[in-house]
Simulated scan of single mutants.
Amino acid sequence: SMKVALELFKDYQGAIQTDGYAAYGTLEKIKGIIVIYCWAHARRYFERALKHDKARAEYAMTIIGMLYDVERI
């Protein structure tokens, strides 16, 4: 829950990578914390978007794929 996340990171300063769990969204409000999200979870939304806006969804998935390529190196 939000209370647990706030308590766990109350003295933390830096970046926190999350999977998009809503409770972590509150961490964005704490000065000194930068919340970064997981591309694998974000990519799922672009996969769903293929049905509605294929060209832009494919473009986004290509860019995400390029990021994955960099991480493999």
Rank of each mutant, 00 (worst) to 15 (best):
V4Y: 08
M61P: 04
K29V: 14
K54Q: 15
A55V: 10
Q13G: 05
I73V: 05
F9C: 03
I34E: 08
H52E: 15
E28F: 06
Y59S: 15
A23D: 13
D11T: 04
E28R: 12
D11G: 10
A49D: 06
Y12N: 15
Y37K: 09
L8S: 11
W39G: 14
R43D: 04
A40V: 03
A23P: 15
G65A: 08
F46P: 14
R48E: 06
I73Y: 12
E28A: 04
L67K: 09
W39S: 13
G25M: 12
I33Y: 07
F9Y: 13
T18Y: 04
D69P: 05
I33T: 05
T26L: 08
K51D: 08
H52I: 14
G65F: 04
Y12W: 13
G14A: 10
E28L: 14
I64T: 10
I33V: 07
G65D: 13
A23L: 02
E47D: 08
C38E: 02
G32H: 14
E7A: 13
G20I: 05
A22Q: 01
R56T: 09
V35P: 05
K29S: 14
T18K: 01
A60G: 08
K31G: 02
I36C: 02
A57R: 00
Y37L: 13
T62K: 11
A40L: 02
A22E: 11
H52G: 07
L50Y: 00
D11Q: 04
Y21S: 12
I16N: 09
M66Y: 13
G14Y: 00
A57H: 09
Y24V: 11
C38V: 10
Y21F: 15
R72V: 00
